[in-house]
Design a protein around this nucleic acid. Structure first.
Lengths: 400, 400
DNA sequence: ATTAGTTTGTTGTCTGATACAACATAATAC
DNA sequence: GTATTATGTTGTATCAGACAACAAACTAAT
């Protein structure tokens, strides 16, 4: 028999857990909503007015949120207090890429205080990326106002991350293998460091603040220069899998083609929907998603149209499979996948329906990702914020 | 803004919820373990001895579990009381098939008290299946000892089920479309009726009592005469999707073949791994899984071997995709899929690894389903039991 | 302007659930 | 038989949330 004590599902709850849960619930609500009336918190949580009052003042004393009188009164009765997340708690988000490493400072209230993109001359190693990140974080930290507290660092990794210990298993574009990235960066900056797969993080951001806001069952497909990543929100929670590798939606096999993807797997979505093939046909070497989108929109070339159309079909086939598996409400497309969708929305939707069960696909909505360049910045910052929100009264915040 | 009150994630908890949660935790533990020492409950839940004592006696008074002195003492100290689920709470499970409808009575302690398989002369309609099920349930109920309470009825449906209202959307083998099965059966027997997809139910049963017992991340693939179904356990919970249709793992597209499956979708796992093709090659018209398994094991025909080998490859490709998506610890195979696996385990494993990410597949174990014919019986009974366990003190049990 | 009505914040009290400590009980070990 | 160990039982303490009463701050109607 496995050790049952380990399983959260079999743990009992005590009064203190109750308090923690309710503190978390209130803080999460405030964090997600930005600003929210205390009366709204009461209504949403179902807790008593006096309890909410108590919870809010405890969170206030912890320095996690701020109360403000509402000026604009709407309706009869005593106006309710507005509650908002503090600007004084910050998380850093780090996004290592092939040619640059970006570091940002994000407040618990969702403001991006600073962003710095450090171009890397040589192909980055984990060590060089850690050094750059540590340097920028240390500098930003000095520049922050006194009294600001740091929740930690979130890193979006274009590759597979073992969530339990923050090890990068394999990041094909960067060529990184088995790097204890979180531990090393944490050592450098003396802050807790959380790692996540970039697509999972993007999914989280879209589900919290973007195109799938408020949706409990969503799929996110995101394509960049390094292939196709994905994430899944099932019942409001990120699909994680046993070791945290779940959600590799680019690597679903949709064809018996021998064409391989960036991880060497044949016939997958990523192998058949290739940004580089599109760039080639437009004779582009490098292009931003915007430039590529403009080409796709404007092209009159039958050859290009044929290629695009084929990719739309492959994408639809991939989405079909995912719809059958997950029965989502929303499918969010990011990067050039959205350009494909907008090129031929009907073709994509029809082909998707052809390949999926009626019951599962009848209510599916396909949407464009809504957060643009802030996607990974906000998403990565959510990792330390999530840890903070899950343990508001015991989480150890660091000074600036 | 969506109505936040609806979302469980934003609900606060009060003291009563705490009690409910702890009662549920204890009852669930007892239900899953069969018999468990009170000291073990204390250790597992982390709750205080006195609290556990209190919880157990409340559940005892509710007639949900029984305490017994342990005779076999092991170790020093006062012997702990053994706690077991009562035999006096029963759920009925119903399994409609093309040629028969099976009804069983299962106790909360996991014993199958009765089972009756009613052959259906004509192709069953929802109405005829409901009539048969109601008749058998009523008879069994009369035969039960006095004092036995009924938790409800669980139905395993070979098709897509909308979990919210217990409507069968589409059951291809049975030819049923849009049937309010749960409501109708509930009307007949005056008991709460819960519906589930057969493969999801099988998955649940395997995860609770069978080959994936104690595993928090598992995939279940089950093949019968009606195609391939599947279920997913993610973080200990059944994957449900927005409307409850998630987990249609037979309908993942793995090839660009035009061959369609029983739902008319081309190139899917179900379209390419076909029981009927195997039957044909062995010149069988109908066969049990055991008979088919014997043929597969014993065949010397190169043609048959080739076909089997192809099916193994397709199955491996399907599993690859699922492994990439879900990163499970265990993949459980049921029905003839297990025969395919045992025919060529190395081929299947190698091909699976070829098609999946190293990180995701390195620890995957493929196993044979361990519950046999009790699979759906136990699984379907879990549906009402689950409802009971989630609200032990307020669930309304019916008399026998 | 005054008053009634409405909604929300605040305060003190009550209830209920779990923790804790002390004691009782039942086994083993020597 | 006594010491030791582990568990059940009982009474008390603590803590969190519910509830009721009241105060506060607004709108609307007269």
């Amino acid at each position: 028999m496995p050790n049952l004590r380990e399983k959260a599902s079999h743990r009992g709850r005590s009064g203190e857990d109750l308090r923690q849960h309710n503190l978390s619930t209130v803080l999460r609500l405030v964090h997600l909503q930005g600003t929210i009336l205390r009366s709204k918190i009461t209504a949403t949580t179902g807790l008593n007015r006096s309890t909410v009052s108590d919870l809010v003042s405890e969170l206030s004393e912890l320095g996690l949120l701020v109360e403000k009188e509402t000026e604009a009164t709407s309706g009869v009765g005593r106006p309710s207090m507005a509650v908002m997340a503090t600007d004084s708690v910050v998380a850093f988000s780090v996004n290592p890429e092939i040619d640059a490493t970006t570091v940002s400072a994000v407040t618990l209230s969702g403001k991006v205080l600073a962003r710095e993109r450090k171009l890397m001359r040589a192909h980055p190693t984990p060590e060089s990326a850690i050094a750059v990140a540590a340097e920028v974080i240390t500098k930003m930290r000095r520049d922050l106002a006194k009294g600001i507290k740091i929740a930690g660092v979130g890193v979006s990794v274009p590759g597979q991350v073992r969530s339990s210990d923050g090890v990068i298993r394999f990041a094909p574009q960067l060529g990184w293998v088995e790097s204890a990235f979180a531990a090393a960066l944490s050592q450098e900056v003396s802050l807790p460091v959380y790692l996540g797969n970039d697509a999972s993080i993007g999914c989280l951001a879209e589900a919290r603040f973007g195109a799938a806001k408020g949706v409990d069952n969503a799929i996110f497909l995101f394509a960049g220069s390094g292939g196709i990543g994905g994430g899944v929100i099932n019942n409001g929670k990120t699909l994680s899998g046993a070791a945290g590798y779940a959600g590799e939606l680019g690597h679903i096999r949709i064809s018996n083609s021998k064409q391989v993807d960036y991880s060497g797997l044949p016939g997958t979505l990523e192998a058949l929907v290739r940004r580089n093939d599109l760039l080639d046909i437009f004779k582009l070497y490098v292009a931003t998603d915007e430039e590529l989108d403009a080409e796709i929109r404007g092209t009159e070339s039958p050859k290009a149209k044929k290629l695009i159309s084929e990719q739309v079909e492959h994408l639809a086939n991939g989405i079909s499979t995912l719809v059958n598996i997950f029965n989502p409400e929303v499918v969010v497309l990011g990067g050039f996948l959205n350009s494909l969708f907008e090129f031929a929305p009907d073709q994509l939707i029809n082909q998707m329906r052809k390949g999926s069960l009626t019951a599962a696909s009848e209510r599916v909505v396909i949407r464009k990702g809504g957060l643009g360049s802030n996607l990974l910045v906000l998403g990565a910052a959510e990792l330390p914020f999530e840890a903070l929100i899950n343990a508001p009264s015991s989480y150890s915040l660091s000074g600036a």
